[in-house]
């Protein structure tokens, strides 16, 4: 995983750049600006499940990785679906998957087929799942079904309503 950029403007700029790079699977995640008295950056998990609800790949887990004594792991279970389906059987942190949390903005994740974490992605039907949980805040889970691979470029989009903003999945042949 490469975290390319942050900020809405930056994503727009990046989109044209990405075409040149011919990235094969990318996910854009928007974390909304929230007007709240006490703001903690959300924990976010991004993963792919197959048609039997089995996790085939963890793409990203953003949490308080740097807290002392792994204190930040205390809230991982608040991403309830991810925790149940994958997190609780992982040893955190996961190299190349886990990273620090981000504040409001849009973030683009890019992945290359055949390479981790997409190394084992066989042709088939899947869904991308993005789950966010925020301390003193709420939780939201967005699902985007997709088929892999695609013969032409495909852009799939879902709009979050509370803890997540626009989620975009772009697949290129």
């Amino acid at each position: 995983m490469k975290l390319i950029t942050s900020g809405l403007m930056a994503v727009a700029t990046f989109a044209s750049f990405a075409q040149v790079q011919a990235a094969d699977l990318s996910v854009s995640i928007e974390i909304p600006e929230l007007d709240v008295a006490e703001y903690h950056k959300p924990y976010v998990a991004v993963w792919i499940e197959d048609d039997r609800n089995q996790v085939v790949s963890n793409l990203a887990v953003w949490y308080d990785v740097d807290m002392r004594n792994a204190e930040g792991e205390k809230w991982l279970k608040d991403m309830r679906q991810w925790w149940r389906r994958s997190g609780r059987s992982l040893e955190m942190p996961v190299d190349g998957v886990s990273g620090a949390t981000y504040g409001p903005g849009a973030y683009e994740l890019e992945f290359t087929p055949g390479k981790a974490p997409l190394a084992d992605l066989k042709p088939g039907d899947y869904r991308l799942r993005v789950e966010a949980a925020r301390e003193v805040g709420g939780r939201e889970l967005i699902n985007i079904p997709f088929s892999w691979p695609q013969s032409s470029e495909k852009k799939l989009e879902e709009q979050g309503s509370s803890e997540l903003g626009a989620i975009e999945l772009t697949i290129k042949p």
Partner: peptide, 8 residues
């Protein structure tokens, strides 16, 4: 009942 982390 369901916890994550260490030494909880």
């Amino acid at each position: 009942t369901q916890l994550s982390g260490e030494d909880r």
